[in-house]
Design a protein around this nucleic acid. Structure first.
Lengths: 247, 247
DNA sequence: CACAATTTAATTGTCGACAATTTCCACGGC
DNA sequence: GCCGTGGAAATTGTCGACAATTAAATTGTG
């Protein structure tokens, strides 16, 4: 299975609308289009040198991906997550990644498990070279969580985790500061999860993954508390739930 | 919080694109646009008396909702789920609805719980009047699961369950046949889940909800086995994971 | 000066047209 | 009958224009 929404080398294979979707999504994640920013279709269309029609199609998709919010006749705005909302994403992740691990324990092949073992070994080496203890997985294909979601063999779990949540996770991963020792511990938790999967222990795999994601949530929360005035937008009540019928 | 994508009484409040999204979604769920059917933009635009532009916007959203699949320069097709894929939806539901119940046990107000108790009482009466033992919750607002998702106070859990999964669930609920006694037992399970929520027992609420959804999965599966040649499309490998880079 | 009303400018939603691509159909060859 | 080819028809993706709505700027009044 080839990951659908990624680094297509042949640029003529994808439509303008899809390319815009990807590029604007990346700009949102990178902060080029910052949280809360109003999206002007004409300005963006001029910037990219395209007509507004494919741009609007891309915006509709970005809205479904929860990266922007839109209101009729008003336009779109880059989403801005409060800490509570980030916590909600972690809760949803915990549930789905737990289930993904359970299914992976039942469905993942020995070759896939071995491959992931090698990936974790690469991670360990990269981690050992860092002086700040941060544990990043820069390549999506080599991301532990991505591999588990794929190993679940559940089209929906994979699609939600690898496509819908992927941009969300990256969006506020920029706000995350690694607490001392957490990187190493996260890696160890990965190893234990994989052990449980290899043993076919679905329940243990789920428990360990849920603990892992919960620990990541707590770690994120702790790091935000440390820099509360800068890193949090507590005034941001999430507009997705109130905006649509505001009128 | 007003549910965003539903029965808006004032038709001028929503754009054409959004109205098309809703109507086409309903036609897919109702089977008017049957699984596997090719979607012709010009034909649909003529039928609805609109230009293709808002129609395309609606299709982009329907694609994100997993109700249609699209390929560049080829067009869109109504999705067709195999039994295995329906099972995957149940797995994802189990995870998220379990988490929703856990959060609801922590966050739901006494008034909300009482209101839901009344809803269940209405359900019991409706169930007692049925001779076929089928347990339908025709109104979304009065749907037990919807209420729990709202009670979770997690924007993302709610959005996924109440918006993204809602149409999917209805899509193959039409294929579900109630096995004798399952309707009554499902209602009883609802009551127990609500009891756990009222007691603030988050873990029990989650366990009971997960069991409930798993039982629904097994019930669905059993009903499909009973009518295998008619109700299953086993040849349908899910196109979402293979179609995009087919070219 | 502050606020309300009006005007102007910009943006948003939809339309229909055009170019590119795919699908369909007829015909010929084996 | 089946398969391949070519051309016409249909569809898809994008463009720019127009009408409706919103936002910003300007003017008038107390």
């Amino acid at each position: 299975m080839q990951k659908p929404a990624a680094d297509s080398d042949n640029k003529t294979d994808i439509s303008l609308a899809e390319r815009l979707f990807e590029r604007i999504g990346e700009e949102i994640v990178a902060g080029t289009l910052p949280p809360g920013a109003k999206i002007s279709e004409p300005a963006l269309a001029r910037r990219f040198g395209v007509s507004r029609t494919p741009l609007r199609e891309a915006l509709r998709r970005l809205e479904e991906r929860k990266l922007i919010t839109s209101a009729r006749n008003v336009g779109s705005r880059v989403v801005s997550f409060s800490l509570a909302e980030v916590m909600d994403v972690y809760h949803a992740r915990e549930a789905l990644e737990g289930m993904a691990s359970r299914l992976a324990a039942q469905r993942m092949s020995a070759a896939e498990i071995d491959g992931l073992r090698g990936v974790l070994e690469d991670h360990r080496r990269a981690l050992a070279e860092r002086t700040d203890g941060a544990y990043y997985q820069d390549s999506h294909d080599l991301d532990f969580h991505y591999r588990i979601a794929r190993g679940s063999r559940s089209f929906l779990v994979e699609k939600i985790l690898c496509e819908e949540f992927y941009l969300l996770i990256r969006l506020f991963r920029r706000r995350h500061n690694w607490i001392a020792g957490r990187g190493r511990r996260a890696w160890e938790e990965h190893v234990r999860i994989l052990d449980a999967i290899k043993d076919g222990d679905a329940e243990l795999a789920e428990i360990l993954m849920r603990r892992h994601v919960a620990a990541a949530r707590l770690s994120f929360e702790a790091s935000q508390r440390l820099l509360a005035p800068d890193g949090v937008s507590p005034e941001a009540t999430h507009p997705l739930l109130t905006k649509k019928r505001e009128k």
